[in-house]
Design a protein around this nucleic acid. Structure first.
Lengths: 234, 234
DNA sequence: CGACTAGTTGATCGCCGTCAAGTAGGGTGG
DNA sequence: CCACCCTACTTGACGGCGATCAACTAGTCG
């Protein structure tokens, strides 16, 4: 019941993906080739599940194209989006070390490419390259920080501020044109589609953004940048 | 302007603290002695600041006694408590790797002992002992998971459920007797002291807990354990 | 062209944050 | 040893934010 469709990607291309994956930036590309040899690449269509909560984490996975939503579902059925992964973002480095199951699910937002390596090979490679471990800890630190800031935002900020922060972050990561629906933004901001639409409606009226079906264009980035705050990492 | 008071702790005792610090459990104690040689121990009185947000992270710090509250303050002055550290919990391993400043503050909840090692020596030690890096990544993974669960709880759960989860977690970590005020619990659950008191009042009337000034006794642990859920890591 | 999904807007309502006023415990100093 | 004060606890009343429900419009894909 393997998901996605296998795609043949040249070795050089696989090396390029790994060399631009967070944590691997400093590794000698020649050495990455050994790992890239063991890698496979799969293609997932929009909306397709890549892995689910509770699935065992058997492979290290990193985004090689498109966008992937990594999220946690609540008992009520609501979704909380942790990360929108793009090229070079790893989907599950966290859970590979202690062998626990996935506690988040990953789903393709577009037609997406995901490169993966067997867990054992990934761990061996990390053990042989301490700089990778250090890189992973660094990025994990940023995720922890961002997680606490979002938890705090949930109790501290009003819905409008949370949504603006999400737009700020997405603008920072994806540029002027954001291809997200109100429902997807709601999962990121911890609110409902209705509230997102009320806020984006106001921002549109004020000329800050332009909206379309599944699309938001940031017209005035300065207006969504909070005073001196760095964007959340998502 | 060094905070706390220096305490002389025998080398064997310093080794014991390190050997029970998360991430170091698997390291040969004989090798830990080298690191323990470089360690100093400081004592902080209840309420005293150990480090503040924005302070540079010059030393690796781990709790050698008492309890330490690690928190982030909001612009409004409200506090969000990330972790209540006890013996063996590290306070700042996250920020040491990329050399960034502290993004959380640490404050003694009791008379507390904190063992510390210069950042450079800590990093050298980790580089020489890959199992420490793997251990740190594992614990970071749990923190990330817990952070997402708490962020989700903030939007998904009612105040009462959040408070019960906090009690569950604290019971799991500290046992039957919890020495926390309503204000401290509020910072953990992301609510106000008034709401905490309303909930604990009800739980007291139902015989689940017993309350006193700055003290809660869990009488009926089964009643605060959610259905099949593991306690949050704090 | 039809069906599904996304967007839009209004009305309602309840949770819980806030303010307020008072009680009680416990440590400190005279 | 007692009086005082500070802190924590307690309880009530109020009000606003935003979730929820509902009804409708408008894109877009097949």
């Amino acid at each position: 019941m393997s998901r996605g469709r296998l795609v043949q990607l040249p070795l050089a291309e696989r090396v390029r993906v790994l060399s631009r994956t967070v944590g691997f930036e400093k590794v000698d590309p020649a050495r990455l080739a050994a790992l890239a040899e063991l890698a496979e690449v799969r293609s997932y269509s929009s909306g397709e599940l890549i892995f689910d909560e509770g699935d065992p984490a058997k492979r290290f996975r990193t985004v090689a194209g498109g966008r992937v939503k990594v999220a946690k579902s609540a008992t009520s059925g609501r979704l909380f989006t942790a990360i929108v992964g793009a090229f070079g973002d790893t989907l599950n480095a966290v859970v590979l070390f202690d062998g626990s199951d996935h506690f988040l699910s990953a789903r393709a937002l577009d037609e997406a490419l995901v490169l993966s390596v067997p867990r054992r090979d990934f761990l061996d490679f990390v053990a042989a390259h301490p700089e990778v471990a250090a890189g992973i800890i660094t990025i994990l630190g940023r995720i922890v920080r961002s997680g606490y800031e979002r938890a705090m935002g949930m109790i501290e900020d009003r819905v409008e501020e949370r949504i603006v922060k999400v737009l700020h972050m997405l603008h920072n990561k994806f540029g002027e044109e954001l291809r997200f629906t109100a429902g997807e933004l709601a999962d990121l901001a911890g609110t409902t589609p209705e509230s997102v639409l009320r806020v984006t409606g106001r921002l549109r009226d004020e000329g800050v953004i332009e909206t379309g079906r599944g699309r938001i264009i940031i017209l005035d980035p300065a207006r969504i940048n909070g005073p001196g705050q760095e964007p959340l990492l998502i």
